[in-house]
């Protein structure tokens, strides 16, 4: 009955708002009242999602530090030309200086995404398989693995920053074991390693949950049928390859699509942890957009919008590519 006070509030609200609503209903009819219910949410979506999406294009082709599009000068594709000004795209240093961080960030992000997604899906799959074997306390373990997902990225970064501190827990433990500690976040390779590790640490529970749901949707009798029809005895490995994996494939594919799109937008944890450093070792593409648009002076709204469009295109293309590939694999079977 915990919801009773809420119901009372709802009843009170509806009682005094009903007369005008009833009047409106008499005017427009029952069916059109649906649009009244749609109005607030879709108005908000229109203003804060659809309109900005269209404006993105306007920004990308105008220049200046003014906010209002009408006060901005039309420059055509200049920002895109700046973006694609590198003489050698594999070396960001050859790009125009204002897009150096973008390209640096893009390469870092691609590297991050590839490693992170493989680790994330692998670790989540392993965890889900282990959890699925559990006979008791499955709920408890699911909660344990899911808990980091609930934590704020800032706090996750703080926790690990505290552990990875030069005088932190990790170095202290290594010291006690007679090993040498390291300034983990001041080394370019280790900073990238920990960025990936922490990102996986913080988000794997979510993917585990989805994969576990996929595993539990596989009918139990399929396993029995498979072992009956086979002439060879089924080992765990063979069951996994012949039954589990093929049936889990759709889940794994959608999980990896989500993982890729999310990983491309990595920012919060890593930015709080390293501010993109040391140097540009952990600068990711979203950080470069954020800095181009909001922290550099003068603010380069146009360029940042162009970068956003490029990022959106990359995400859409990768998602599309994954979906096409997965469809083809489905049809092959």
């Amino acid at each position: 009955m915990a919801m009773n006070p809420l119901n009372a509030v709802g009843r009170w609200t509806v009682d005094w708002t009903n007369p005008p609503m009833r009047w409106l209903q008499a005017r427009v009819g029952v069916r059109r009242m649906a649009f009244l219910f749609l109005l607030p949410n879709f108005l908000a979506l229109a203003i804060f999602v659809f309109l900005p999406m269209l404006l993105n294009g306007v920004y990308a082709v105008t220049d200046g530090n003014r906010v209002l599009p009408t006060e901005r000068a039309f420059v055509g594709l200049q920002h895109f030309r700046t973006l694609f000004s590198c003489t050698n795209y594999l070396d960001p240093a050859t790009c125009a200086p204002e897009v150096f961080f973008f390209w640096r960030g893009l390469y870092n992000t691609v590297f991050f995404v590839v490693i992170e997604v493989v680790c994330m899906v692998g670790f989540s799959l392993a965890t889900a398989l282990v959890l699925n074997r559990l006979v008791r306390a499955q709920g408890f373990w699911r909660a344990v693995f899911f808990y980091p997902v609930m934590l704020s990225p800032v706090v996750v970064a703080l926790i690990w920053k505290w552990i990875l501190d030069r005088q932190g827990l990790l170095n202290g433990t290594l010291d006690r074991l007679g090993l040498d500690g390291l300034p983990w976040l001041l080394d370019a390779h280790w900073a990238m390693f920990w960025s990936i590790f922490i990102y996986v640490w913080a988000h794997a529970g979510f993917y585990t949950l989805i994969i576990l749901a996929g595993l539990q949707a596989i009918p139990k009798d399929l396993y029995e049928a498979a072992s009956l029809e086979s002439d060879r005895p089924f080992t765990n490995g063979r069951i996994f390859r012949k039954v589990t994996l093929p049936l889990l494939m759709p889940t794994l594919l959608s999980v990896s699509v989500i993982a890729v799109t999310k990983a491309f937008q990595v920012f919060d944890e890593v930015w709080v942890l390293t501010r993109g450093g040391p140097g540009t070792a952990t600068t990711f593409v979203l950080q470069s957009i954020y800095e181009t648009g909001f922290t550099t002076a003068p603010r380069e709204y146009g360029l940042a919008a162009a970068m956003s469009i490029l990022l959106a295109l990359i995400i859409f293309l990768l998602t599309g590519l994954q979906l096409v590939l997965s469809n083809r694999r489905m049809e092959d079977r």
């Binding site: 999406m53 920004y59 906010v67 937008q265 957009i289 648009g293 909001f294 919008a305 956003s308 990022l311």
Partner: peptide, 9 residues
């Protein structure tokens, strides 16, 4: 994250 700039406007 891809509409930050216009959303800001």
């Amino acid at each position: 994250t891809v509409i930050l700039v216009p959303l800001f406007l």
